[in-house]
Design a protein around this nucleic acid. Sequence first.
RNA 1: GCGCCCGUAGCUCAGGGGAUAGAGCGUCUGACUACGAAUCAGAAGGCCGUAGGUUCAAAUCCUACCGGGCGCACCA
Length: 548
Amino acid sequence: MAERTRLARVREELQAALEAIIQDLGGPAGTRVVLAEPTEAGRADLATSVAFGLARTLRKSPRDIAAELCARFPGHPDVEALGAEGPGYVNVWLRTEFLSGVVDDVLSDPQAFGRSDEGRNARVLLEFVSANPTGPLNVVSGRAAALGDSLARLLNFTGWRADKEFYLNNAGVQILKLGQAVDLRIRELLGEEVESTWPEGVYPGAYVRDAARAYLDERGANAPRSHEILGAFAADFFTDRQREVLERFRVHFDSWAEERRFRESGAAEAVVRALRQSGHLDERDGAVWFRSTAFGDDKDRVVVKSDGSLTYIVPDAAYHWDKVRRGYDRLIDLLGPDHHGYVSRITAILEALSGQGSRLYVLIVQLVRLMRDGEAVRMSKRGGEFVELAELLDEAGVDAARFFFLERAPETPLDFDLGLALLSTQANPVFYVQYAGARIRSILRQAAHETVADGPRSLLAAPEERALLWDLASFPDVVARAARELSPHWLTRYLVELAGHFHGFYRQHRVLGGDPDTVRARIDLVRAVLAVLETATDLIGVEIPQTM
RNA sequence: GCGCCCGUAGCUCAGGGGAUAGAGCGUCUGACUACGAAUCAGAAGGCCGUAGGUUCAAAUCCUACCGGGCGCACCA
């Protein structure tokens, strides 16, 4: 699996050949040739614009240089032709026999096709969702969940060892406020009127009643009701709910780190001690400050407030320090856009503590707007009213939700069209992709009764077939790019393209019932397409149903 | 005021130095007596927010401005 792919090999060989010719022509030493897919599909298989850069030193037009490169090209068994076109491009067409070999590449080990060892077994910890356990998960957490989980799948597929972790903020001020809210809701359940005197800053959401009811059911009306006890109970209660909906969303965390532990174990105080010993702390205005500006932050940060309590960054720092000590080579945090200011301070403190600030990479996941009938569905956490992930899953289903969340690059704001997610037509990309898979499975079921040839397979030379071969051959590149850029949206785009090419092929050509050589070739082709569809959907956590 | 994200077809968005800027939806026109028409084929549709600059070459890089979103705590 660590072998280069078919496409990578021929690309490297051609690049080397062209670079050698450039040296013969007197081009600058070390000139690199980059062969890539032209922006416009169908213009060529691969192309390079290297001639433009050589024009000055060779004192010839790019067009002449491109022509000369083509004329001197010694030939390559996998290349059909080279051509100089446009103002100076060198275009490459590959032999169809060469491309069709990709079917064997896929079928020789269908589940491994596209794998790589790019990560070289380095360990990555992906931390995501990490929602406060003060209520149900909302749709924004859903996007982070889909992203983080798919990134883990992608990284594991490309040679990293990735773990998924949820950081539970189950201690501190917010949890006390939650406990207060539970206390009020319990009074309410016991008959008191509480709404008119609801205190500022205490969670107003009606969902807190669920926790209150659970407390009464489990512990009874006479159980102790300090804010601390109630807060801890409710945090556990909502954590369980969150875990349930995440499992339903096919997101399973390898581990759950608890803020409570970092506070109780003294790890948080140890951070302050370590910073003090290394001389990074100042006392000012009755508080203790960390000089984070020395590490690139835009202002210094308070770590111990004037009332003696710790700010939230201290246990967070303890947590990240712990990640480094657990031996992770890379730490990836998925955070919301409201946390982008957090990046420089947590990097600074990690650097001060361990010298490993550069291991942390923070991916800012932009907002989700739910759209229904062209209107944004209002979500306001302050008013205690927002769309829960569970509701979205009820309405749209797991596959559509995951696919839609992953359609955009993480740092791009996302509009989630609820109406579209419910459609079972081409307009709905999830459906379109799944339908391609269902069609192939249907063909393969019927192929069981078909006689196929045993001999050499016919060529798959029709344009629709060639398009599919090209898709298959480039799949490993797509996977590599999605993993490298931490952007699974390359996979969703790829899936729609592959499914589209399959549907086009399907309308134009029959798989079954032709001459045995062609039947065999086409069955193998669609088996390979199905295998890649399955791998790609699996990487984003979407399933292809057997029948639809 | 400062920081981050975003301005590309009517809509939702790809593309982030190189060819005539791509895709899906929507619109219009066609295609089922054979494997699933929940599909396919074709057409129309663009001063890539504006203005400068760098470059042989800019949607892409730089600067300024305009517009939209989100932040800027001894909250987390």
